[in-house]
Design a binder for these strands. Structure first.
Length: 595
RNA sequence: GGGGGUGUAGCUCAGUUGGUUAGAGCGAUCGCCUGUCACGCGAUAGGUCGAGGGUUCGAGUCCCUUCACUCCCGCCA
């Protein structure tokens, strides 16, 4: 028999009545009645109420003991009387009468209470993460994360994928995010980089003939943090397949996500077959390439209305003549909303840096004529209103919010407004997951500052269309087999069918300003491998942390990360990053520049 | 790099128009209490009001500077 326990703290039931047991765990809570003491003993599995009275010689010692001390108790299980059963816990029908106990791990006065639903400052939670992780909600989140990863791994293996590890110390790449660098001792002055993703390696795995690969892969990017973005490191389900087209990848991923989300959440899936939305359509209808499809509001472009002679909204008309566009959002049946509802949204838009949102409501007057009610309604005669209604599917009683500006600013403000208005009108069903694919990303985009052409996503993506018919003269028109998976407005994943043809790759890199020599030098491993018989291949890499975040219904990625860093990329518990000794620096041929 | 929010007891927070000795709950310590499960009751200790400077007869409160944490923008192929 194990000397620490015969049962865990979630095991004993009324059938155990009379059993002699040994339990070990943390003191979760004490309730001291002077001559009678209740102790809630907690371990990973649950809680068992233990009890001792003054007759026992251990009583005084246990009465003084600190919460969160680890103890072992020997005792006897007894059934609780009917009126003292606790239905909140699985062991609530019994309790253990303590006969003897032993302290296994002492506990100092706590810097934060473990038994409490209160929220605490992150700083103290991160410093004492081992205490924070004992708390119920986050403890369960971390267990969920483990189960999700196991489940995904099983599913992948079931579908014939092989799991491989790829190097953590690799080379710096010129594209993408900022690298974390590791100095090389044996190669003075040179550096390894931690992989931003195993992108090149997984392609090399395909070239090596392994057909289907996956990995729960750590990825390192030295960029600033956000609520849904850990600084430094995160995990991807990295996967790649040979001899596939885009739809083959989609099929695998959809099956995986539907199964995973059904297994770990009770929320509804809005689509079992994820809709595909082109990048262009998404930017127009939702103002974003990560639309929240739970939100029924849709953006329409009605620039043409402001070319009509009978419309007299001169501010917008002037801007339209100068090249601006007008986009709008229709809200259904909002004619009875108070003025303050509309004005609040206009005020909010101004706070977001826009010039505000104009609005009016479609009405019918007593002569059955359509009119517009609202501050700018008078500028729109009936015929113009009819045209707006047919373009936007608006009905009498609906309202319209209008924004005018340059396309990029319009996309930004209408996207934000779409979220804001839906939130105010409570249009979003929080009990739903709405997945979609965003497809047909442009291969290139124009850098607004330098005016040069650059890759808009992954330079290794395959352009669409027949290869010998691609119009390289108009690079901004070239679409790529590049796709994102989005759920509830969160970007979960990016992927692509890869370009496995070196000659085509040189052409595309040339457009982005890289010579053949540049490509040969910077991507030598890749380009070399693709020259020796590479299969067509493609893949994707869903973010594990964000998947768990959605399943755990958490807003912050640190709630599903066991030992996260803070916003300044510091580990407050381990004191990382830290200074190193002169000797270590010397070995690495490094000098620290004094300020 | 830029913008917003927060910072008061170990923890979570209150603190009015600038005005006497800065408060509460939890936790800690001590005492009372044999059926609680957020047990209850009483007492005690615990404060550089993030830091520095300024205005003022007087600053937790107003002003300036600065630090920490956090959210957002930039950034994240």
């Amino acid at each position: 028999m194990n000397k620490y326990r015969t049962h865990n703290c979630n095991e004993l039931r009324k059938d155990n009545d009379g059993d002699k047991v040994v339990l070990s765990g943390w003191i979760n809570k004490k309730r001291d009645h002077g001559n009678l003491l209740f102790i809630d003993l907690r371990d990973n599995y649950g809680i068992t109420q233990c009890i001792i009275d003054k007759e026992n010689s251990n009583f005084e010692k246990l009465e003084k003991i600190q919460l969160e001390t680890v103890i072992k108790i020997q005792g006897k299980v007894i059934k609780r009387s009917n009126d003292s059963i606790n239905k909140e816990i699985k062991t609530g029908e019994i309790e253990v009468i303590i006969q003897n106990f032993e302290v296994l791990g002492e506990c100092k006065e706590l810097p934060l209470p473990v038994f409490s639903d209160q929220e605490y400052a992150e700083e103290i939670r991160l410093k004492y993460r081992f205490l924070d992780l004992r708390r119920k909600k986050i403890h369960e989140n971390i267990i969920l994360r483990s189960k999700v990863i196991s489940f995904i791994r099983n599913e992948m293996i079931k579908h014939g994928f092989l799991e491989f590890q790829t190097p953590i110390l690799t080379s710096s790449s010129p594209e993408g995010a900022r690298d974390f660098l590791v100095p090389s001792r044996l190669n003075p002055g040179k550096f390894y980089a931690l992989p931003q993703a195993p992108q090149q390696f997984k392609q090399l795995v395909m070239v090596s003939g392994f057909d289907k690969y996956f990995q729960i892969a750590p990825c390192f990017r030295d960029e600033d943090a956000r609520a849904d973005r850990s600084p430094g490191e995160f995990y991807q389900l990295d996967l790649e397949m040979s001899f596939v087209e885009q739809d083959d990848v989609f099929k695998v991923v959809e099956t995986l996500f539907v199964n995973t989300f059904k297994e770990f959440s009770n929320k509804k899936l809005l689509f079992n077959k994820f809709p595909k939305i082109s990048y262009k359509e998404s930017m127009l209808k939702y103002g974003s390439d990560k639309p929240d499809l739970r939100n029924p509001l849709i953006i329409n472009d009605i620039t043409d209305i402001f070319l009509r002679k009978d419309v007299s909204f001169e501010i917008f008309k002037k801007l339209v003549k100068q090249g601006s566009n007008v986009r709008c959002i229709i809200t259904k049946n909002t004619k009875d909303k108070p003025r303050s509802f509309f004005d609040n949204i206009d005020k909010w838009a101004k706070e977001q840096g826009a010039s505000g949102l104009a609005y009016f409501t479609f009405e019918k007057d007593k002569d059955n004529l359509i009119s517009a009610k609202g501050p700018v309604g008078k500028f729109f005669p009936e015929e113009a209103l009819k045209e707006i209604m047919s373009k936007t599917d608006a009905k009498i009683g609906d309202s319209i919010f209008l924004a005018c500006g340059k396309q990029i600013d319009l996309e930004k403000i209408t996207s934000l407004a779409r979220d804001k208005i839906a939130k105010d009108l409570q249009l979003i069903d929080n009990n739903t997951f709405a997945f979609c694919w965003i497809v047909d990303y442009p291969m290139f985009e124009k850098d607004e500052i330098t005016k040069s052409i650059k890759f808009s996503h992954n330079p290794f993506s395959m352009p669409q269309g027949e290869i010998d018919k691609i119009d390289f003269k108009n690079p901004l028109e070239i679409l790529a087999y590049q796709y994102d998976l989005v759920c509830n407005g969160i970007e979960l994943s990016s992927g692509a069918i890869r370009n496995h043809i070196p000659s085509l790759m040189y052409k595309l890199f040339n457009i982005a300003g890289y010579s053949k020599l540049d490509v040969d030098q910077k991507f030598s491993g890749m380009i070399n491998a693709l020259s020796y018989g590479a299969p067509p291949h493609g893949g994707i890499a869903p973010g594990i942390d964000r998947i768990v975040m959605l399943l755990a219904d958490e807003k912050n990625i640190r709630e599903v990360t066991m030992f996260p860093m803070n916003q300044n990329a510091q580990d407050l518990m381990m004191n990382a990053p830290s200074n190193v000794s002169e000797n270590q620096l010397k070995e690495l041929n490094l000098l620290i520049k004094k300020k």
